[in-house]
Write a protein that binds this DNA or RNA. Structure first.
Lengths: 197, 197
DNA sequence: GTCTATAAAAGGATAGAC
DNA sequence: GTCTATCCTTTTATAGAC
């Protein structure tokens, strides 16, 4: 019971910190989001914060992991096909801090030896896999031709999604979901097969 | 003459610095590229570097400006159509530092009040304009249907290009040019008109 | 134009008390 | 689990000599 309570409290505090980190990132950007300010938002000192996350990098990675887990549960299911991705993007519009963290941190992490590089490599492969599954379902239900090169289409859609997020951060009036939906309609209805197959 | 020589020397040093900045960014990333190391590469102290560029941000923006200017002269011409973009991307593969700077710095600069935000906003509008011009040329020469929504296609191509660059930084074996060429063939040959028009 | 010297700040991380 | 206190590093930027 005491032990249980301690764990529960620790987990609650961690969750609180993850939310605070998002707030600060949304306001100042990932680069200028200091541990001190994140800590202050949850009534901790910087040292107190470091007790929960060994390093700053672990904190950011944990934020992104939690996001992926939530998105997976809330929006993804193989039978939903492409709609799953569209729902994720529609949801992203409501969490600009998360979009900013993803865009900024994924860019920074591409450098060799960066502590978050492996995370993004693995995440990319994982997302590609999910998207390919979703596209296969679209083929099975015959909303999409059977000849398309799925890995190519998946990577292209991911690239467009990532690029759109930067455009959206610069101009939030852009409707990311509508644009992706339009891209998807283009892929679906395409007579691309002879080219993309 | 003396004056001329001074200017020439100053300009040469500036150019040297821009190259050095790219080297350091390629190795450590934009975030970890310190003024000190850039200065050291050209045999200057950090203070000496600051004489040429008032701030770090001006230096980075200048690097990107010089790149755009060069790309414009070397690769872009309205009558070349989409090939201009393909050539730029093919060239990008040979300058990873530039790609890294662009990806990382454009992400960071999306934050409100960032000194480079205006630069990226303007650059984005400029690139979109060039691409639309190029696409119009493709239509004129009837390599592409007349019904397509050009601004939409342009933004989508830019998004895909930007997203591909992140993928490429994580995995340099990806052939960005081939993927964009394939996207372009898809757009071109598409029976998208009823959807995208 | 370049250097030396220094400011002045901010950052992440750790040790040890409670 | 959290705080206080502190360390140490690194960074950008400036002032003034040469």
């Amino acid at each position: 019971m005491t032990r249980r309570g301690q764990y529960a409290k620790g987990a609650a505090k961690r969750a609180e910190i993850l939310d605070a980190a998002l707030e600060v990132v949304a306001e100042h950007g990932c680069r200028k989001a200091s541990n001190r300010e994140i800590a202050a938002r949850v009534g901790l000192t910087q040292a107190g914060l470091m007790h929960h996350f060994g390093t700053r990098e672990e904190l950011f990675i944990e934020v992104l992991r939690a996001r992926d887990q939530r998105d997976l549960e809330q929006f993804y299911a193989p039978h939903r096909g492409f709609q799953g991705l569209l729902d994720v993007i529609a949801h992203n519009v409501t969490v600009p801090g998360l979009v900013r963290l993803y865009v900024e941190y994924s860019a920074e992490a591409t450098i060799a030896g960066h502590p978050a590089r492996a995370f993004f490599e693995e995440r990319f492969a994982w997302v590609r896999g999910l998207l390919i599954e979703a596209l296969q379902q679209e083929q099975i239900e015959e909303r999409m031709g059977p000849e398309l090169d799925l890995p190519f289409v998946a990577d292209l859609v991911i690239a467009a999604t990532d690029g759109l997020q930067v455009q959206w951060l610069l101009d939030p009036s852009i409707d990311m979901t509508a644009r992706l939906a339009r891209l998807w309609e283009g892929v679906r209805a395409s007579s691309w097969p002879t080219i993309l197959a």
